[in-house]
Design a protein around this nucleic acid. Structure first.
Length: 587
RNA sequence: GCACUUGUAGCUCAAUUGGAUAGAGCACCUGACUACGGAUCAGGAGGUUAGGGGUUCGACUCCCUUCAAGUGCACCA
């Protein structure tokens, strides 16, 4: 729509002798109830036109209509100038833009971005909250790549700390040598089982101590099992061979399990960082900060930064005993990542309970004048709630990722078999399809909501395959493919005299796709893509209902509609790919 | 208590970033196929955009305020 903007700039210059830029022009799609396809909001121009909005609109409209052969008519309603663009222009858009190879393929913008997501703890399996994180991270990475960035997907694995020692200790104590092989359990689930066992035992001991007269706080500190876990952590840090060996063994179980979950989720990573490697980093940055006067040292030796002038608090960056805290580590890891990749932007996909932490971290790095500090962004997302309330691991109300995916596939299987359209599929082909549909439902359900909002996960609604869902869009794709199987495209450039309203709508929607990608990339929001592709599928279905394709007699019209269908299928496929969702040929 | 986030139809979500009469899906009613795929389409009903003020040609969107929900405010990660 650049040519409209240019003509508007020209019109304003000519009529009112005022220079404006493209940014001053508010272009939007014309609302359905009015004539035209493109609308210019002319209220802002009245400042220098010194005329009523209507008169201003008419003058600009007249100028543009004379200036551009593509503009066939215009009308003005209040401060809205609606332009009608010729069918010939839209048909040309279909062939030379939408159906061209380069459509919605952004030029590389020469910028590199890292998206860090997933970042699991290695003491328990992934749950629904992680699923939201993983899908968001993966999709944002795809969208950024489509918008022209070079993308590195990274995963910072939290593989050390007291929580890991808890699982290790409980396994040592109560495990009887169980392994994933001996039990047939997925490794991450097995380790998670012992994390739960630890917690049970810990609670039991707390109760015992309380019964013996200790306060809650005392009991929590003095329970023998927690002391043992702490001791184990110290041994781990001291490099005790037996502890390290157990740690390696159990972590390997977990990684094998995670790899399976990631594979099913369809997410991938280019680079893994491990906290066992990075937890000591950042101390040199503390020194640097002290030198630069950004940090200060208290009498007890602890190091702080004063952020009260930024509206934040004082924050500890190094303990009085010289050991690191979370912040120290994250400063060091940020530096490490930057040294590795020199990226222009660095996205952290982390839940919104850490908003404050990242605000502080980014402020510190900026104050230190670190390279890349301006490109830091916390993609903060809301928690996932269940209809019964919050997910709590200790109360066993978490939704396990593996179980969830299994259920979704099962539901997809039932529904698909009931339709009976894929009876000739082989067994493996069927399984793939069920997985595709089940995951399509799950992914779409989680991604269609604005990331920053809390998400209510209603299991009954999530397995729904009708309405505003992933399978609805997949179905539309399968339907298009079915049409294209039955009638072949033989003419690649056929034209028609006049477009039906539904055809025009469809082309208009299709042309928006590149803009949608850019908007989604700027806002780090898969939801924008998700809502767009739903709109597109609906628009296609409407077209499909009203406009016969194969049955139409006029061969030119038939060919044109086939092309339009092919274009729709292509864009649906691409858009869904940005969400990490596959679309089937039939279902 | 302080800070941040959120609040839109009965429910789950949109709204081109300040634009026209706030749109979809689910649920509820009414219609459309012996088929170009009905996992679809057309229509009906459903709203004081949490409440109240303000800013302006124009406010779900910006500002102030009240209310409600969530999260954070460790020498934990």
């Amino acid at each position: 729509m650049n040519f409209i903007t240019e003509a508007t700039v020209k019109a304003v210059k000519h009529l009112y002798n005022t220079d404006i830029t493209a940014a001053d022009i508010n272009l939007q799609e014309t609302r359905k109830e009015f004539e035209g396809q493109v609308t210019i909001v002319t209220f802002p121009f009245t400042k220098f036109s010194k005329k009523s909005p209507e008169q201003t609109g008419n003058e600009i409209g007249e100028f543009i209509q004379n200036d551009l052969k593509e503009v066939s008519a215009f009308n003005v309603i209040k401060g809205f100038l609606n332009l009608s663009i010729t069918d010939a222009y839209w048909i040309d858009q279909l062939y030379n833009d939408i159906l061209s190879k380069g459509f919605a393929v952004a030029e590389p913008n020469g910028k590199r971005v890292m998206v860090e997501y997933s970042s699991p703890n290695t003491n328990k399996p992934l749950h629904l909250g992680h699923v939201r994180n993983n899908l968001l991270g993966f999709s944002v990475a795809e969208i950024l790549a489509a918008a022209g960035y070079e993308v590195i997907k990274s995963n910072l694995v939290n593989d050390r700390g007291i929580h890991i020692c808890k699982s290790m200790l409980a396994w040592q104590r109560f495990g009887n040598g169980e392994t994933p092989e001996s039990t047939g359990m997925k490794g991450d689930h097995l380790v998670g089982k012992y994390y739960v066992i630890f917690d049970k035992e810990y609670k039991k001991q707390i109760e015992e101590l309380k019964a013996a007269g200790q306060t809650e706080d005392e009991a929590k500190k003095n329970a023998p099992i927690i002391k043992e876990a702490q001791e184990m952590l110290q041994q781990w840090e001291a490099g005790n061979e037996a502890v390290i060996s157990l740690w390696k063994t159990m972590n390997t179980w977990v990684y094998t399990g995670f790899a399976e979950t990631y594979r099913k989720l369809g997410v991938t990573f280019d680079k893994f960082y491990y906290e066992s490697d990075t937890y000591l980093l950042g101390k040199d940055i503390v020194d640097e900060g002290l030198e630069k006067g950004v940090f200060f040292k208290k009498d007890d030796g602890s190091v702080w930064i004063d952020l009260t002038s930024e509206g934040l608090d004082e924050k500890l960056v190094l303990r009085s005993d010289g050991t690191s805290v979370y912040m120290t580590q994250d400063m060091g890891t940020a530096q490490l990542k930057y040294n590795d990749y020199h990226m222009d932007k660095s996205i952290y996909v982390v839940g919104n309970e850490q908003d404050y932490h990242f605000k502080v971290l980014f402020t510190i790095l900026k104050k230190l004048g670190k390279d890349g500090a301006d490109g830091l962004y916390h993609l903060s997302y809301g928690m996932v709630d269940l209809p019964s309330g919050k997910m709590k691991s200790r109360e066993g109300t978490v939704v396990d990722a593996d179980d969830l995916m299994e259920e979704m596939e099962q539901k997809a299987k039932e529904q698909t078999e009931a339709k009976g359209k894929i009876n000739e599929f082989g067994e493996e082909e069927k399984q793939q399809l069920f997985h595709m549909i089940g995951m399509g439902a799950l992914k779409y359900f989680l991604l269609k909501v604005d990331p920053k909002k809390r998400l209510l996960f209603d299991p009954a609604e999530s397995v729904e395959l009708e309405g505003h869902t992933g399978p609805f869009i997949q179905y539309t794709h399968a339907r298009i493919k079915s049409v294209l199987r039955k009638a072949k495209i033989t003419n690649n450039n056929v034209t028609v005299d006049k477009l039906a309203a539904e055809e025009l709508d469809l082309i208009l929607t299709l042309t928006q796709f590149p803009v949608i990608i850019q908007t989604a990339a700027e806002g780090y929001s898969p939801a924008i893509v998700a809502n767009y592709v739903y709109e597109l599928a609906k628009t296609y279905n409407k077209f499909y209902q009203v406009c016969p394709i194969i049955q139409v007699e006029d061969e030119a019209v038939k060919q044109f509609r086939l092309q339009l269908s092919a274009a729709s299928g292509k864009v649906i496929n691409k858009a869904m790919k940005l969400l990490g969702i596959e679309v089937p040929e039939r279902m």
